[in-house]
């Protein structure tokens, strides 16, 4: 009795979460303009999508930002995590908890503060401001992914490497980096997804000259949900899902 109830409850939760997404995905293949009833399977919305030049430009912009932001955030974040793992310094505990806090900062707060700072130092809103903003909000995720992996390894190992004649840079390349790689890759993928579907921060710091996909979709929705929006959303969903799964698998492996 209790078991059925527990199972039913869980099913209900999942139903609530996934119903809208399911409807969206189904509708992206629905041969009907308004999606109120099933009119048969079609791929025409996807074809229209590819033919929609402004949408494709926005997609290219988004991918560019996501790749560059994820890469830069991963490099900086990995080095930061290595510093936290490798060295003892004053304020280390404060620093690492600040990383957590910045991850939990509401998007809107981060968006406004970034906007203010960009205006204050005179950065033109557009590619650069978007990129800097995306790097900023991706950074803590990379640091935490890499740091929590490294923390699982005995620090004495690094002393052993020194003792065996390895210089500081050799220790980084031969010991720390190979051990961190799964977390580094996972951090990159996570950053990529975060960047690709960010709306709030991007909405504040973007300029008229550089449109990105989530914002484009948002503006399209204002005039009504078109089936192309369903199609592009489905694609975004698939990309995000695949990347998140890969990043989780990378972290789980060999444990």
């Amino acid at each position: 009795m209790i078991r059925t109830f527990r199972f039913g409850f869980l099913a209900l939760i999942l139903f609530f979460i996934y119903l809208p997404i399911g409807v969206l995905v189904v509708n992206s293949f629905n041969d009907s303009r308004y999606g109120t009833s099933w009119q048969g399977f079609t791929l025409k919305w996807y074809e229209r999508l590819l033919a929609n030049e402004s949408l494709m430009t926005a997609a290219t912009h988004s991918l560019t930002i996501a790749v560059v932001a994820a890469t830069v955030a991963t490099i900086i974040g990995t080095l930061g995590a290595v510093a936290l793992y490798r060295y003892q310094f004053r304020g280390k505990a404060a620093l690492s908890s600040m990383v957590f806090i910045s991850m939990l900062t509401p998007d809107i707060v981060m968006a406004i503060s970034l906007l203010i700072i960009f205006i204050a130092i005179g950065i033109e809103l557009g590619f650069i401001s978007l990129l800097l903003a995306h790097i900023t909000f991706c950074l803590p995720f990379v640091i935490i992914a890499v740091y929590s992996r490294l923390r699982g390894f005995d620090v004495k190992m690094l002393e052993a490497a020194r003792d065996l004649g390895a210089s500081e840079s050799r220790i980084f390349w031969k010991i720390i980096l190979p051990l961190a790689v799964p977390a580094v890759a996972s951090g990159w993928l996570l950053s990529f997804t975060l960047s690709l579907d960010d709306v709030i921060v991007s909405a504040f710091v973007t300029g008229p000259g550089y449109e990105i996909l989530p914002l484009k979709v948002y503006s399209m929705v204002r005039v009504g949900v078109s089936p192309e929006v369903n199609a592009i959303s489905t694609l975004l969903l698939v990309v995000s899902l695949v990347l998140v799964i890969i990043s989780q698998l990378l972290l789980r492996e060999e444990r």
Binding site: K156, M157, A160, R162, D163, L164
Partner: peptide, 30 residues
């Protein structure tokens, strides 16, 4: 003299082996 230059080697209490390397590569490291 820095540790990496000294002609001494240490066996650590926690062994401190490199987990991503084979036994052979661990021993070959030095």
């Amino acid at each position: 003299m820095p540790a990496e230059k000294r002609p001494v080697n240490t066996v650590f209490q926690s062994y401190a082996l490199f987990p991503h390397m084979t036994v052979f590569d661990n021993v070959a490291f030095g």
